[in-house]
Computed example of a mutant assay.
Amino acid sequence: MATITPRKDQDGNIIGYQAQVRKRGHPTQTKTFRSKRDAEAWSRLIESEMERGLWRDRSESEGTTLAQCIERYLSEVTSQKKNSRPETLKLQQWLRRPIACRFMSAIRGRDVAEVIKDMEGEGKAGNTIRLHLAVLSHLFKVAKTEWGMEAISNPVESVRKPRLPQGRERRLVGNEEERLLESCRQDENPDIIYIVRFAIETAMRRAEICGLRWENVNLPGRVALLPATKNGTVRRVPLSSIAVSVLSALPRRLDGLVWDAKPDTVTRSFERACRRAAIDGLTFHDLRHEATSRMFEKGLNPMQVAAITGHKTLQMLKRYTHLRAEDLAKMLG
């Protein structure tokens, strides 16, 4: 049975009501409310849930703020990841928002929806907002399954996510590839010509190319091993004959790296090459799109291409693939 007890100040004035629910087989539940009506409603809810076997202990979630959970998540989850910085930055932004002061049990979908509006007002892209929401969603999952907050619901699951933009459709057209490679040969960075050719052949990301080590390259077997990738999985990339010829032409470095280039250096060199070649609207990451599309045009199926590129879902792979209608027509015969 529930007991409702008035709470008084030192002058005897009622300042609230304490509700206490005792039921055999369950720990005593106590909570204080401003009004007697709220205390009675809460008591009826707890008693009903206990009788139906649906009750879950809310004390942990009712006494823990989102900010406290973020700090714990950073310590126990994020810190264990190989590349924790991107997630850390996202969680730090959540910490600075007013929602971080709310108790976990009190956060609803509408609270998250308001943050989404704020992010859109800040100029964040739809995919960026989705990444922020993904981190928050996983935090709630961990809190529910591992931190004793079984009663909470995940508010991220109930909100409408921003729509993803269409994947970039920029591919090399006309004689752009020849012009780009010739311009790369003229660049002050001697590695850029090899890196660009290698990117077009392998669909590897910029950071994956720059971090490639000779110890992970098997030229006779025509395979490059990527032990640390963006999605955290090990990947073995098959090398075309052109990719093998690119690597075979390189000298071996004492530090074990294949290239003497940092990701930012590659971007700057690539942008210079595009300007010299009068190529507009092309980014280094577009070479990954180009390579992925060429693999399909060579007849590889989606599972084969995904194994090479490292895409975990066919939906993401589709966004990176833009097949030329002219090439598809040739395949039709």
Rank of each mutant, 00 (worst) to 15 (best):
A224H: 09
Q315R: 13
V156T: 15
D255F: 01
T88D: 07
L314I: 13
V173W: 06
S183C: 04
L139D: 01
T145F: 12
G174P: 00
C184I: 05
A2C: 06
L254P: 03
K36L: 12
T313L: 08
G281P: 08
K144E: 12
Y17F: 14
I46M: 11
I116L: 13
R185N: 05
K90M: 13
I242Q: 08
C274M: 06
A291N: 00
L287E: 00
A325D: 04
F296E: 09
K141M: 10
I46Q: 12
T88Q: 14
T321W: 05
S153D: 10
R160W: 00
V196K: 00
Q166A: 12
P227K: 09
S153G: 10
K90T: 13
V217H: 08
R319V: 00
L164W: 07
I70D: 04
V223T: 15
P86V: 06
C101W: 12
T128H: 12
G109V: 13
A278Y: 04
P162E: 09
K90S: 08
R235W: 14
E76C: 01
E40L: 13
P162L: 12
L323D: 01
V258D: 01
A277L: 07
A277P: 11
I14T: 10
I99H: 08
G126M: 05
V21Y: 02
D191V: 04
